Simulated scan of single mutants.
Amino acid sequence: MRTVRIWAEHSPFDLKDELKKRGYRWSSGDEGRPKGWYVDIDEALEADEVRYLSEHIYRRDVDLFTQIITPFERYSVRA
């Protein structure tokens, strides 16, 4: 299975604890990554997670930035 990274950029600050409970991690924007909350999930769960974010976090339809994470990227040696 492939993994998808979903970025919840510009999510409401007061809902950060909800994102943490759901397994989201914070990225400060270092190394060219977006600044915001993100989660890595199986590709098959992507639509459900986007629906959750739209309904419970943003409370509107959103077009979120997503990335496919390959094993090479996940297990690469970082400097």
Rank of each mutant, 00 (worst) to 15 (best):
L53H: 02
G23T: 03
R5H: 09
D14Y: 09
A8G: 09
D14V: 15
D48I: 07
D42S: 12
R59S: 05
S27K: 03
D42V: 10
Y38Q: 00
M1T: 10
R51V: 06
S27Y: 00
L53R: 04
K21F: 04
R33N: 04
F72S: 11
G29P: 10
S11G: 13
R5W: 04
S54Q: 05
I68H: 08
D63R: 13
L64G: 03
G23V: 05
M1D: 14
L45W: 12
R59C: 02
K35I: 02
E31D: 12
E73R: 14
K20D: 02
T70Y: 06
R60E: 05
F13Y: 15
Y38R: 00
S28W: 09
D48C: 03
K21A: 12
Q67D: 07
H10N: 14
Q67L: 04
L15D: 14
I41R: 06
Q67P: 02
K21H: 11
I41V: 10
L45V: 15
E31A: 15
S54T: 10
T66C: 11
L15S: 14
P34Q: 02
F65G: 01
A8Y: 10
E55S: 08
T70C: 08
H10I: 01
V39A: 00
I69P: 00
A47G: 13
H10M: 13
S54A: 14
S28V: 06
H56A: 07
T3N: 05
F65N: 05
E55R: 15
E46Q: 15
D63M: 08
A79D: 12
E73C: 03
I41Y: 04
R74I: 14
G29Y: 05
E49A: 10
K35Y: 02
R5A: 10
L64S: 00
